[in-house]
Amino acid sequence: VSVELPAPSSWKKLFYPNKVGSVKKTEVVFVAPTGEEISNRKQLEQYLKSHPGNPAIAEFDWTTSG
């Protein structure tokens, strides 16, 4: 189950709350306009370098507050 949070234009930000008793931590995933899922800052940096014209990296908020 995921919750969609505010994201930069043409992107989606999905929040996957951890299940009770789960060892997996809460996860935030950005979905690029191409449909590619980005789950960490390093991936995001690589994606933005190879896909010019996207929002600046500073516009991506990895917190769950939206």
Rank of each mutant, 00 (worst) to 15 (best):
Q46S: 10
W11A: 03
S9Y: 09
R41T: 10
P6C: 10
E37F: 15
P6K: 08
E59T: 06
A58Q: 13
A7T: 04
E36D: 08
K12D: 06
P52K: 06
P55R: 03
K13L: 03
P52W: 03
A56V: 08
H51V: 02
S2Q: 09
V31K: 04
A56T: 12
P8D: 06
W11M: 03
P17W: 14
H51N: 08
N40P: 00
E59A: 08
S10V: 04
V31W: 05
S9N: 14
N18Q: 12
E59Y: 05
S10I: 04
V3G: 06
E36P: 00
T26Y: 15
I38G: 00
S2A: 15
V3D: 06
P6W: 10
P52F: 04
K24D: 14
P6Y: 07
Q46A: 13
K49Y: 09
V31A: 02
V20H: 12
K12M: 07
T63Q: 08
A58H: 15
V1G: 12
A7N: 04
Q43D: 14
V3W: 08
N18I: 10
T34L: 02
E59N: 06
K13Q: 02
G53F: 05
A56L: 09
T64M: 09
Y16L: 07
E36M: 04
Q46R: 11
G66Q: 11
K25T: 12
Q43F: 05
K25N: 14
S9R: 14
P33H: 02
L48C: 01
T63S: 13
R41L: 14
I38M: 05
V23R: 13
G35C: 03
Q46H: 09
V29F: 07
F30L: 03
L44N: 00
V1T: 11
P52C: 03
K42Y: 12
K19R: 14
E45D: 08
P33L: 02
L14N: 03
T63C: 09
A58D: 15
W62H: 01
P55K: 03
I57M: 11
E27N: 13
W11H: 04
T34K: 01
V31Y: 07
L48I: 06
I38P: 00
E45V: 10
K19V: 13
P6M: 07
P17Y: 15
Y16C: 08
V20D: 12
D61C: 06
P6A: 08
E59L: 08
K42D: 14
L14P: 01
N40A: 05
G53M: 05
L5V: 05
S50F: 09
P33K: 01
P55N: 04
S39A: 10
E36C: 03
G21T: 08
T26H: 14
I38A: 02
V28S: 01
E59Q: 07
Q43M: 10
E37K: 13
Y16T: 07
T64L: 12
T34Q: 02
V29E: 02
V29N: 03
V31F: 07
P8S: 04
V23C: 14
V3M: 08
H51I: 02
I57P: 09
K12H: 09
T64W: 11
F30A: 01
K13T: 03
E45K: 10
N54M: 09
I38W: 00
K19Q: 13
W11E: 05
I38R: 00
V28L: 08
W62F: 08
P8W: 04
E59S: 07
S39C: 13
G21N: 10
F30H: 01
G35S: 03
G21E: 07
E36S: 03
N18L: 10
